[in-house]
Write a protein that binds this DNA or RNA. Structure first.
Length: 139
DNA sequence: GCCAACGTTGGC
DNA sequence: GCCAACGTTGGC
């Protein structure tokens, strides 16, 4: 199983919005970047991801699960764009801020820090474990 | 709200 | 196929 990170501006789509969708989950549509799309194509059913609030918040607030494999993005006719569906699993007991990620020796090389523009990105098992530890939340 | 970094587009 | 121009993202 692989780990990922999904970024969203809470003004547009927040963790609370995601939670409100429940077990059915929601299409992660709107991605128009090949790297991000390729990451979604690589996802397997049951992969886990962090839910990160960009622009406002600047912190990881929850854990999501991939509940549908990559399929055409319903918000465009352009066949190049695909997306997965994700559902909220649980919130982090303590959100992990970008600031704390940057200052942590295990996490300072994360894609989140190194390529802040990539909206769907891979997370290594070591990074996953470290963030769950900081969040005081079951991995 | 600004702007640096980055990705995409399109003329040549 | 190069690269200048343009648009977008996201931290600050």
């Amino acid at each position: 199983m692989a780990y990922w990170l999904f970024k969203s501006e809470p003004d547009t789509w927040s963790w609370d919005d995601q939670v409100a969708k429940g077990a059915a989950g929601e299409e992660w549509h709107g991605v128009r970047n090949y790297q991000a799309r390729n990451n979604m194509r690589a996802m397997q059913f049951g992969d886990l991801g962090f839910f990160y609030h960009s622009r406002q918040g600047l912190e990881i607030v929850g854990i999501v699960e991939v509940c549908a494999l990559a399929h055409p993005d319903s918000t465009t006719e352009d066949p190049r764009w695909e997306c997965v569906d994700i559902r909220a699993m649980r919130p982090l007991a303590k959100p992990v801020t970008l600031e704390s990620i940057k200052s942590d020796s295990v996490l300072s090389e994360m894609v989140l820090v190194k390529n802040s523009r990539l909206s769907v990105q891979p997370v290594t098992p070591a990074e996953w474990a470290r963030i769950c530890e900081m969040a005081e939340t079951k991995a």
